[in-house]
Computed example of a mutant assay.
Amino acid sequence: MRILLINPNTTPSVTDLVADHVRSVAGAGITLVPATGRFGARYIASRAAVAIAGHAALDALAEHVAGCDAVYLACFGDPGLAALREVSPVPVVGMADAACRAAASGGRRFAIVTGGALWEPMLTEFVAAIGLAERFAGVRAVAPTGGEIAADPDAALGLLAAACRACAEADGAEAVILGGAALAGLAARIQPAVPVPVLCSVEAGTHAVLAAAGAGAGAGASRASRGAPAVASTGLAPALARLLAET
């Protein structure tokens, strides 16, 4: 099983962090193809950075998807997810989409804790867009960004645990997602301090992409059958221009 892992920010250390965690969860039997965004923000923490990251994710898909069984968009917030699914020849799983669906399973009310204040409205909109607003207890964003947390995770553990407890005790969440590629592995470290399940978004996405790759859902479908016509373009990387021009 061959999985393309796309990190659409431009920080290779985050790609390495996520790839290592995915391998530890998935175990033997997978080949991971990590791809870091060729352009864009070092860390995605604004609407402008999200928009650019969607392009970077499409660029990485076009360059590296050949021979893969599924794609893991390893960025909480899933920039470009719908566009990737429109043009990809194999299933595409988004980290945030997978984590939210896992957290809401069984009818649970869930919340999200992440780094970076600007993510609060963006993630609220995201949850509404995937149809889970009625089960959503809200977002609590700690001040450090994902990049800052990745640089010194120990310093952020107390803040993250306190935010997760507040989600459970003040907001009524029955599960909390610790959201963000740079937060990989931290959910298990703060779980003892939180009275409800804390889900690692990286792990939730990993389980979902393995299931998608095994099922092959959507594989082999043509772009035209998914409602995506061939598109002429100017100024794009050659691989992406070719992918968009396919029928």
Rank of each mutant, 00 (worst) to 15 (best):
I6S: 08
P12V: 13
T15E: 09
D16M: 10
L17G: 05
A19F: 01
D20F: 04
V22L: 13
V25C: 12
G27Q: 00
G27C: 07
G27Y: 02
A28F: 01
T31N: 04
V33Q: 11
A35Y: 02
T36C: 15
R38K: 14
F39I: 14
A41P: 13
R42T: 15
R42S: 15
A51M: 12
I52F: 10
A56V: 10
D59K: 02
D59S: 13
A60D: 12
L61H: 00
A62P: 12
A62S: 10
A62H: 09
E63W: 14
A66V: 05
A66L: 11
L73T: 09
L73I: 09
A74H: 00
C75I: 00
C75N: 14
F76Y: 15
D78A: 01
D78T: 00
P79L: 02
L84Y: 02
R85W: 06
R85P: 01
E86G: 15
E86I: 03
P89I: 00
V93D: 08
G94S: 08
A96D: 09
A96H: 11
C100A: 13
A102Y: 07
A103V: 09
S105W: 12
R109H: 12
F110T: 12
F110A: 12
I112S: 10
G116S: 06
L118F: 13
W119F: 15
M122P: 11
T124M: 01
F126P: 01
A128S: 15
G131L: 11
G131F: 08
L132D: 10
E134L: 11
R135V: 03
A137S: 14
G138K: 13
V139F: 10
V139D: 11
G146M: 01
G147V: 08
I149R: 06
A156P: 04
L160D: 06
L160R: 08
A161K: 11
A161F: 06
A163Q: 07
A168C: 12
A168L: 04
E169Q: 14
G172T: 00
A173H: 04
V176K: 03
I177W: 07
G179R: 05
A182K: 00
G185P: 06
G185Q: 08
L186C: 05
A188G: 15
A193M: 12
L199N: 04
S201H: 09
G205L: 06
T206A: 14
H207I: 01
L210I: 07
A212T: 00
G214I: 00
G214F: 03
A217R: 15
A217E: 13
G218W: 05
A221C: 14
A221V: 15
A224E: 14
S225D: 14
R226G: 07
R226P: 03
R226K: 15
G227P: 06
G227M: 02
A228L: 07
A228H: 09
P229E: 12
P229C: 12
P229Y: 06
A230T: 05
A237P: 11
P238L: 08
P238W: 03
A241N: 08
A245K: 07
T247A: 15
